[in-house]
Amino acid sequence: MDSIVITSLTVSLIAISVIFTVLVVLICTIKLLVYLLPYQEPPLSKSTTHASPQLSATNTVTPDIISAITAVMATHLGKSPQEFHITQINPK
C-alpha cells in the first residue's frame, strides 16, 4: 500500500481518538457541572394560579385537557411543565 495512504489512515485514527478524548473530557465536565449545580424549579407565579380557573370556566376545555396539552407541550419543547403556562385555548 502506498505510504501516503498508510499515513492518511494513521492520521484518521489519531484524529478520531483525539476527538473522542476531547468530547469525553467535555462529557465528564458537563456531568460534574450538572451534579454541582442542579436545576431548581422557579417559584410559581401568581398568573399561573389565575390562568387555571379561567380555562376551567369554559365548557369545552376541562382541567384534564389542560393537563394533557401541558404534558404534550412539555415533551415537544423539552421543558419542565413548570417553565411555561397555558393562558388561553380557543377551541375551533
Binding site: V11, S12, A15, I16, F20, I30, K31, V34, G78
Partner: peptide, 24 residues
C-alpha cells in the same frame, strides 16, 4: 438538550467518521 443528555456528544464525535473516511 446537549447539557441534559451529555452522552449525545459522542454521537457528534461518531459522525466525524465521515470526515476521516473521506480523507482516506
Amino acid at each position: 438538550p446537549l447539557l441534559a443528555n451529555p452522552s449525545t456528544l459522542l454521537l457528534g464525535a461518531a459522525a466525524q467518521i465521515g470526515v476521516y473516511t473521506t480523507l482516506v
